[in-house]
């Protein structure tokens, strides 16, 4: 077996007395599309924060492509090819859509902190930016300030900035939250297109999206993974039904997606 894209072992996170992540082990193969589901407050976003280097784990380790990444600063983890989006849009509000994506592209194109080049003359950066804007269908809004975008477009830009650097491990935190049906469909198509051939880890509440995109599902409840497996297995798992899907609305959601 080849080295997994991500290997999470014995991960714990405590905020003072609050023990939020309580021993998570997870292995994600290269090219896998892995969904994490779980009730509100289960620790899904916290898990993303631990993997992406935003928080330091209290215990345990994260390994990417065979190299340990826990303890590294977030920007270093990003440079090694892991990129994440945020549950709440987290973009550069006063810059235009194009400038947002361009910032996301910069590092991967080898233009670190350079202050001796005119950004407008960096042909490869401009081309890559245009390519990504086209991919996410924001080309016609390229010159709109990000803060003025409609909500769904802000979510799309969030994804665009996340994939701009060409990372091969992508973490998306509830990318379709708050979107209408048609917007969700568009977003799913976009995610599929944008993460082709990459490893995808996605947190999502919308079961339709989960069953649509994921080939593996893990269920996180109170900081522990209580089940992990193929979508069919998860749907039939009694433990999952009891702990998480006991909620009637969710049962319907799962039934509806089936």
């Amino acid at each position: 077996m080849s080295t997994p894209a991500l290997e999470i072992a014995g991960l714990h996170k405590k905020f003072g007395p609050a023990h939020i992540i309580r021993g998570v082990d997870l292995t994600i193969a290269k090219g896998e599309r892995h969904a994490i589901i779980g009730p509100n407050g289960a620790g899904k976003s916290t898990l993303f924060n631990l993997i992406s280097g935003y928080f330091q784990p209290s215990e345990g380790s994260v390994t990417m492509n065979g190299a340990p990444i826990s303890g590294l600063p977030a920007f270093e983890i990003n440079r090694r090819g892991l990129s994440r989006s945020f549950q709440v849009s987290n973009i550069f509000a006063n810059m235009t859509v194009r400038e947002n994506v361009r910032c996301g592209v910069l590092h991967s194109m080898g233009y670190g902190y350079s202050f001796w080049r005119n950004i407008g003359n960096l042909r490869s950066v401009q081309e890559k930016t245009a390519e990504i804007l086209e991919k996410v269908e924001l080309l016609d809004k390229a010159h709109v300030p990000a803060a003025l975008l409609p909500y769904a477009d802000q979510r799309t830009l969030e994804i665009a900035v996340t994939i701009a650097g060409g990372a091969d491990v992508i973490l998306l935190d509830e990318p379709t939250a708050g979107m209408s049906h048609s917007e969700t469909d568009r977003a799913v198509a976009l995610i599929r297109k944008a993460t082709e051939g990459k490893t995808l880890l996605i947190v999502e509440h919308d079961m339709g999206v989960v069953f649509d995109l994921a080939d593996t599902i893990s269920v996180l409840v109170y900081g522990e993974i209580i089940a992990s497996g193929k979508p069919e297995d998860i749907r039939g798992n009694p433990k999952v039904r009891e702990a998480y899907l006991g909620d009637e609305a969710d049962q319907q959601a799962i039934g509806g997606a089936a």
Partner: peptide
């Protein structure tokens, strides 16, 4: 107009996100 100048604006807007684009 330089990459650093643009990144400075990005950091002004959102220093948190800047970390996740590799800076």
């Amino acid at each position: 107009r330089t990459p650093l100048g643009k990144l400075s604006e990005a950091t002004r807007d959102n220093p948190e996100r800047v970390q996740f684009i590799g800076f």
